[in-house]
Amino acid sequence: MSPDALLVAEYLGRALYGGAILLIAIGIYAMVARYNLMRVLLGLALVESGVNLFLVAIGFRPEAAAPIIVGGVTDVPMVDPLPQALVLTAIVIGVGVLALAAALLIRVKETYGTLDTREVAKFLAAEPADAAPAAGTAVAGTPARETVNAGSAS
């Protein structure tokens, strides 16, 4: 491999990996710091894209061709075809999951009237009213559950 190619590979590598990490980070940020479930799903899509980019980047080789044989010429260097196949599969899986998520999102909005994760969590945590401390092992502790809920939901 020529020194130029090596240099290109290094810069490309940093850029591609950096891009993948950035996509993942933005996606995760959207998932953990936002309350809107739609944004959470968009974040999920971003994370998946980032991961796919990472996978494709693994198979990269400088100055290599796409893994398609043109005109019967087989002895040209080609990039690794395997990650490409994997990414194809991963994309389709991602599409399926996101479509299902969209369907659930519709039902969540319909059922709770909101897409705010805090509201949904409140609904889910609406447990049987009686906190029921242990029989015979009565504990003087306050019902900490309520405080935890209030903390996470406000």
């Binding site: 290094e10 080789r61 690794d80 990650p83």
Partner: peptide, 9 residues
């Protein structure tokens, strides 16, 4: 990721 051999799969 930087520890991976980029371009030398």
């Amino acid at each position: 990721f930087q520890a991976l051999p980029f371009g030398a799969a």
